[in-house]
Nucleic acid binder design. Structure first.
Lengths: 201, 201
DNA sequence: TCCATTTTTGAATTCACCTTCAAAATGACG
DNA sequence: CGTCATTTTGAAGGTGAATTCAAAAATGGA
């Protein structure tokens, strides 16, 4: 029998297992048995903790999103220079490669968000928070006179997050030319035009 | 019995039915019976024409993509002024609303493209062709002295398509603030900065 | 150590979908 | 109008996954 664990530990395990299963089989293709296999348990054990698979999937998506966002915030908190903040934040929004699990998980939501309200709300809320994050960086830089914004900070922030999202899709779809470095440079090109700063540091 | 049709007519029907079924149930959630229902046939009849459902799904995605792209090209062909071309093309890349079937279909590919090579190739080729489309507009405008590009036309074109993609996701996910008009304005903001033209016509 | 409780298993059942196929319906063509 | 090839149906069979549940195993506490 699989090692027994406390209720909360097991739920965390299952959320992780569900995350991997979603990446492997797609949000509409995951099966109870996939999650069980990833967790090293039987289907019955999964069902004992989550009688409804769809609830587990939502929790897994939610946890993945929060982790992604928190990671970016933590990275950001170590910096003070607005230029450096902007450069580092752009990079941290891109997948490390075509297999990056965090971005692959988020990408699974793209289509489902149009069909499923819960996923739509989750994805929208992540987008808005990332926009706020960029907006704070832009406003700070503008206040310090480092940035001369070509448009409102909200507009620029929305576009920056949008570009990250889109290149995340391109990279996980294995575009033969656009990888993490190329995407980074493309977004920086916009960021330079929008901030009037050459963003070298 | 459902009206009998010629082989090629029926295949076109089935591709349309599959398109609707994908939008309704997701690319990984579609079932033979969903397609049959959309087509007004039984599962057996669908199988008679497409013994392998996944082939039909690929054809449906392919057809949807081609239609989307051809539509944009046709719209573009009616214009000569680079400014107008750019403005109209940006608009034609956005969904008309959160239910826009063409964009919802494309969005279904986002996640699957990371798992399925065929879908990855399809999506990548659409992206590249749209980039070329924009690049031609930008190069023409620059040659005529109407645009003063802030970066290489390839860079700007890639970013424009990326922005369209991303806002397509936001809109179909029913972002409470970002609708077609707002997204259009956001992309125009970038296009103005990138072309040095206020894009009023 | 033993007991009570919680967790997990594994087998049985049910359900839903895919697949196959014989028979029926349809339409083209002589 | 009759024949024939094509298309469609509908039922039967097979497969695999979800669900249920009694029994077994693991754990913590007395």
């Amino acid at each position: 029998m699989a090692q027994r664990k406390s209720r909360s530990d097991r739920r965390i395990d299952l959320i992780e297992a569900a995350r991997r299963a979603i990446i492997r089989h797609g949000i509409d293709g995951v099966q109870l048995s996939h999650v069980a296999e990833e967790a090293g348990l039987t289907s019955g054990a999964v069902l004992y903790h989550y009688p409804d698979l769809s609830e587990l999937l939502v929790e897994a998506q939610h946890a993945g999103m929060e982790r992604f966002y928190e990671q970016r915030l933590r990275r950001l908190a170590t910096l003070t220079d607005p230029v450096e903040k902007l450069v580092v934040t752009i990079r941290s929004g891109l997948p490390t490669g075509s297999l990056d699990p965090d971005v692959r998980l988020l990408n699974e939501l793209g289509g489902a968000a149009g069909r499923n309200r819960v996923y739509g709300v989750l994805l929208t809320s992540l987008y808005d928070r990332q926009v706020s994050m960029y907006q704070a960086i832009l406003d700070t830089g503008a206040a310090l006179g480092v940035f001369r914004l070509s448009a409102g900070s909200l507009t620029i922030a929305r576009n920056l997050v949008a570009l990250e999202d889109a290149y995340g899709y391109r990279i996980t779809a294995r575009h033969p030319v656009i990888g993490p470095d190329e995407a980074n440079e493309l977004i920086l090109s916009y960021a330079r035009a929008a901030t009037g700063n050459d963003l070298a540091h």
